[in-house]
């Protein structure tokens, strides 16, 4: 409430200037579909006088292809952690002018230094989540499962045909290697074979591999257990209170989507303004509230919806933070092993 007055004032101020602020320029923002609240863009326009447009894409691969094609169509994009290093290597992103991003200091301590971009030279976290799994406590034997990958990879016999794994080689392979205690980037075919054996043994227990419709499937009670992103779990849980989200003790994948500026962006100054603006707690919290994923900005908690902030699946409890494992870029050799396992699993 206290914060609202200056905000409203600044909005008025921006409005007042709008006539003369034409020179403030434009911003072309591209993000995953349904991952950014359109109202927030309007607020940005009011706050800064910059005219902003929002484009959507469906996958990192699509974004990569668009950036490779060039043309400077986008000023800010949101690649996942897994693609930052690849895009930097290919010269598709430009380094930040950190003097224009004073709000970088707002990042929470555990997001200050990230393996894929240690100094935030090219990227800054937008939203993050985890890839664990969820189950329906009313339908599993005993009403609760241990906080491990074991019930997911080796489900009790009663759950045959009632378990779903994500249809993504990366999500499944990483989870399996955490469970087996194997390096997720292993180049050793024997280790890959262990993952393959685990997945082949799990396959007959699965209803399907699918990454679409995970919310509906769990909310409708169609299946009992589902490998799932925490934000999707949060939405499903809102419809079915008996669902539980698991942070397996062996380790759970932490994914971070990041704001970045393409090499050939046309409006670099506006891009910096936008990213800095997004690092303000109330703005990033609006994105969290819309997408149902947590963010990395200190002080945003106060602006997050209560039921989102109170969900341990979204707001990871202190004692489970150590279970979160950030992304590692594997060698082409390790990735080739992964796709081999995937083909064997699905031939």
């Amino acid at each position: 409430m206290i914060r609202r007055t200056p905000l409203a004032l600044s909005a008025l101020f921006a409005f007042g200037l709008a006539g003369t602020a034409q020179a403030a320029g434009t911003l072309h923002f591209a993000n995953w579909s349904d991952y950014f609240p359109p109202e927030l863009l309007k607020k940005f326009e009011q706050d800064t006088g910059i005219k902003a447009t929002l484009d959507a894409y469906e996958s990192n691969e699509t974004l990569l292809a668009k950036l490779k094609a060039g043309g400077g169509a986008y000023d800010v994009v949101v690649p996942s952690d897994s693609f930052i290093q690849i895009m930097v290597q290919d010269g598709l992103l430009q380094p930040f002018d950190t003097s224009k991003l004073p709000n970088l200091k707002n990042l929470k301590a555990n997001f200050q230094h990230l393996g894929f971009d240690p100094e935030h030279a090219y990227s800054v976290p937008y939203l993050w989540g985890t890839t664990g799994y969820s189950y329906d406590s009313q339908k599993v034997p005993g009403g609760a499962l241990e906080e491990s990958w074991k019930p997911f990879f080796e489900p009790p016999a009663e759950l045959k045909g009632k378990v779903v794994a994500l249809n993504s080689i990366e999500d499944l392979y990483i989870a399996a290697s955490h469970y087996l205690g194997i390096d997720q980037c292993t180049e050793d075919p024997k280790d890959a074979k262990k993952v393959q054996d685990l997945l082949l043994a799990q396959k007959p227990m699965l209803a399907m591999y699918s990454s679409d419709g995970t919310i509906e499937r769990m909310a409708a009670g169609e299946v009992v257990m589902h490998q799932q992103w925490n934000g999707a779990y949060h939405r499903a849980h809102a419809q079915r209170a008996s669902l539980v989200y698991v942070y397996p003790k062996e380790g759970v994948h932490l994914f971070i989507d990041n704001l970045a500026i393409p090499k050939d962006a046309s409006n670099v100054a506006e891009a910096h303004t936008f990213i800095n603006w997004m690092m303000q707690p109330e703005n990033i919290a609006a994105a969290s509230n819309f997408a149902k994923y947590n963010n990395a900005v200190e002080g945003s908690d106060a602006f997050m919806d209560k039921e989102l902030f109170d969900d341990p699946a979204i707001n990871t409890p202190q004692d489970k933070l150590a279970r979160l494992k950030t992304f590692e870029l594997c060698s082409p050799k390790a990735l080739a092993l992964r796709s081999k396992v995937w083909t064997k699993l699905k031939k």
């Binding site: 691969e61 993504s168 080689i169 990366e170 082409p332 990735l335 080739a336 796709s339 995937w342 083909t343």
Partner: peptide
Amino acid sequence: LIQLQFGTAHN
């Protein structure tokens, strides 16, 4: 299978 090679399999 073909889609996989152009996508996550990077081949």
